[in-house]
Amino acid sequence: MEGLVLKLPLAFQTLVTGLAIGGIYALMAVGYSLIFSILNFSNFAYGMVIMLASFLGYFAMSGLGLGLGPALLCAMLGAALLSFLNERVAYSSLRRRRAPPLYFMISAMGTSIFLENMVYATIGSRYNAYPELFAVPTLNIFGASIGKMDLFAMVFSVLAISALTFFIHHTRLGIAIRGASYDASMAELNGVSLDWLIGTVFALAGLFAGLSGVFLGIKYMAYPNMGWITNKAYIAAVIGGLGSLPGAVAGGFLLGVLETFVSVYLSSTLRDVFSFSLLILFLVLMPSGLFGKTLEEKV
């Protein structure tokens, strides 16, 4: 009995920590899934956009001395532009000549290597810590401590995702995006400019990359080798079902919580093996994830 009393707070603490990181995973997965839903391929360059956004936020706060709000805005706009350019340079011509998905992925990997090493070569491999935002950084909720920044990130993530859901369901542009995600050529026949729409989707995903980049930077610092954590974006998206936004959110939180439990109760080194094994398990057994629509490759 005593053991149980001692152990419960740890479980609760683990849950809270897991939810805090899960919020950021959800944010990343939403942006990743958004691109997947419309172009139907896995944009590996997305992680590097998140990494660059994290640097943008760092420079805005440490270099220019901006507050959190303006820095977030800077990072979001910068990442949106970057994501948009990524599509125009690396994917738009492939799209026009209807290249196989293989080509898109190679192009995405190329972009990803290019961006990561560009940062190594120009900015350097140092870890850049964001300035402290709160004097007392943690808060106590029912015996579990949570960083104020984590709480803010979590609330903000939920707000941002709700805003996106509203946008997707209740605006003309959102309806066009949903239409194109089912059948791009049909949407085009109905007068949607696909070029413009896809550009918008990449910019929109970039906004989410910007948000998650800054939150990740605050939590883990900004450095070029962030791929290990931005990889979680597609793991979470696969768990939830690629291309499904509610799925991405659920997958993000689920992955965050499961991962934290593994690292607390089993071993922290096993955490990433666990996540990748989960990824493979889902791909093999449940390729459409928890919420995804069943997608067959188009002939």
Binding site: S42, V238, D272, F276, S277, L279, I280, L283, V284
Partner: peptide
């Protein structure tokens, strides 16, 4: 065997190999 037998979409397969590579390295 598991991924090819499941006849995954080509990009899912690629993601799975990426995951396998990372898991192997951590191992």
């Amino acid at each position: 065997i598991p991924t090819l037998r499941a006849n995954l979409r080509s990009d899912y397969f690629t993601i799975a190999t990426l995951g396998f590579g990372e898991a192997m390295r951590v191992l």
